Simulated assay, not measured.
Amino acid sequence: MAEQDDRQDEFDHAWADSAEYKEPSARARMLAARWKENPPNPAPFRADPDPAGPRRSSWVSTAVVLGCVAAVIVLLGWAQLRSAS
Rank of each mutant, 00 (worst) to 15 (best):
M1V: 08
A2M: 09
A2R: 12
Q4I: 03
D5N: 08
R7D: 03
R7S: 00
Q8F: 09
E10C: 04
F11G: 05
F11W: 11
F11T: 04
A14S: 13
A14R: 00
A14T: 06
A16T: 02
D17E: 12
S18D: 08
S18C: 04
S18A: 15
Y21S: 12
Y21D: 14
K22A: 12
R27K: 09
R27W: 10
A28F: 04
M30Y: 14
M30F: 14
L31T: 03
A32W: 00
R34N: 13
K36R: 11
E37D: 11
P39G: 05
P40Q: 09
P40A: 06
P42Q: 02
P42A: 05
P42I: 01
A43I: 14
F45Y: 15
R46N: 03
A47Q: 04
A47R: 02
D48M: 08
P49M: 07
P51Y: 01
P51G: 14
G53E: 11
G53S: 11
R55S: 15
R56P: 01
S57Y: 06
S58A: 03
S58C: 07
W59S: 14
V60F: 10
V64N: 08
V64Y: 04
V65F: 05
C68E: 13
V69W: 04
A70P: 01
A70R: 00
A71V: 02
V72E: 04
V74Q: 01
L75F: 03
W78N: 10
Q80K: 05
R82E: 10
R82S: 09
S83E: 13
A84G: 07
